[in-house]
Design a protein around this nucleic acid. Structure first.
Lengths: 245, 245
DNA sequence: CGAACTCTTGACTAGTGTCAAATTTTGTGG
DNA sequence: CCACAAAATTTGACACTAGTCAAGAGTTCG
């Protein structure tokens, strides 16, 4: 299905999620030089300290943002799914303050930063849509801060499982309440401020209590109501209601 | 000193930190209807779920963003100092996903959201500056996630003390390495994912080890080098180097 | 000057981390 | 497609950081 949709159309789709585009807006996007690129898992899209000149829109697969302490400890500070832009922060910031890596095999549409800048200056609707993409990610950072700062391990894990389900559904990618979670338990720990060992214990407990089921890395939310409650999950921060109009 | 600078000029100053403004840009800002407002500590500037129609630029004092769990636990997810905008997220998002409160007595310049929207559409330089304000805040969220997720209590407290010092200095407000930290230990705990009791123990330890000195809530960084090292602090994420040009 | 916050301190607890080893799964080259 | 190596998961025993509870001292402010 998706194979048949051109990257230009995917870009139009991603942008019109948050703003009403007119024919000129669409024509400007369709006229962009866009390159499709496949990236292997664990490869870097952006490195801290770099000055990126391209921005990627994820077409297939997942990526994540990470930051490292000097001691080598890692925090995964964001997950990105198809339809997300990996590099809006470099639209106007000179140097990247973190890394972006492919979590799975990734297919991205690559756009020159200066093309995006030009569109944000000349096309108000596109500027608005890009702003909203950035603002929704900011909102997600805030929720993650609440999650890591004030929920216990069980709540944190449950919250992330709920978020991923909600985001995949919003992107039209999740079949009901089952999805493939392409993260190791170590990565989950890095995203939640916990250790891999403890992630393992919590997942087991959630399964034992009937809130989720697991088959390899496939997650099924067996009791959405209870999981949502245990995780104190409310999707307001994802701004999925945010209409284009 | 500051009293004599008009809110319009302060707004021009805040925006030209990140973009080169021409005469038209400046004229557009000076033509805005801006209201100066004083707000008492603990008062709300924005409430979660609201649709704000104003955006505030902080002239004097400090504010913070908070999120609550259903159980009533609080996370302080951002601090704001003079020169920061409290509400850029509402430039294009309909509903607020968190609260903004006055930490101290606050003097703000209030601008209509729609005026800011109009400027971001018509004045590319202003759009760029506002983007950068938003992107720098995003960067700070990421660093806070690393801080809370992967540093121990001593590192977290030290990091926040370094950040506040760096931000005050960047705003021209800190006298050397001494500043008034207008937060209770409970608020510090909520900002760092710790309890007030533990904040107290860590502050005492930092003082005993000669990294800081305290007098009431006045903090003096007694050994910047060591504190910076203990906290793994690197100011890259603040993007203070980010030039207007 | 008194009430309500803060801060400080101690004793004890609990949640999460650490370490290590066994088991299972995944990936790769032949 | 098999065989093996590497990576990831699972589990248990134990350690330690940070939380909880409680009470006294200090501070702020009407």
């Amino acid at each position: 299905m998706f194979r048949t949709v051109s990257p230009h159309d995917r870009l139009v789709g991603a942008i019109s999620r948050y703003a009403v585009l007119n024919d000129t807006d669409r024509a400007c996007i369709l006229a962009l030089a866009i390159e499709t690129k496949d990236i292997a898992p664990t490869k870097y899209l952006v490195r801290e300290g770099q000055r990126p000149e391209r921005c990627a829109l994820i077409l297939e697969g997942f990526s994540f943002r990470q930051k490292l302490t000097t001691g080598g400890q890692r925090a995964i500070v964001a997950l990105q799914v198809p339809g997300d832009f990996t590099d809006l922060q470099n639209l106007y910031l000179n140097d990247s303050d973190h890394d972006v890596l492919a979590l799975t095999s990734l297919r991205v549409a690559v756009i020159a930063i200066e093309d995006l800048q030009r569109l944000s200056v000349t096309r108000p609707a596109i500027n608005k849509a890009l702003w909203i993409c950035g603002l929704v990610e900011s909102s997600t950072f805030r929720e993650w801060l609440l999650n890591i700062g004030r929920r216990d391990a069980r709540g944190r894990v449950g919250h992330l499982l709920c978020e991923i389900s909600a985001r995949l559904e919003a992107a039209g990618l999740a079949r009901e309440l089952t999805y493939e979670l392409p993260m190791t338990q170590e990565q989950l720990g890095d995203a939640l401020g916990l250790t891999a060992v403890h992630i393992n214990r919590v997942l087991k407990a959630l399964e034992k209590d009937g809130l989720i089921q697991r088959r390899k890395r496939q997650i099924t939310i067996a009791d959405w109501r209870q999981l949502r409650h245990a995780a104190d999950f409310n999707d307001r921060y994802l701004h999925v209601q945010q209409s284009a109009a």
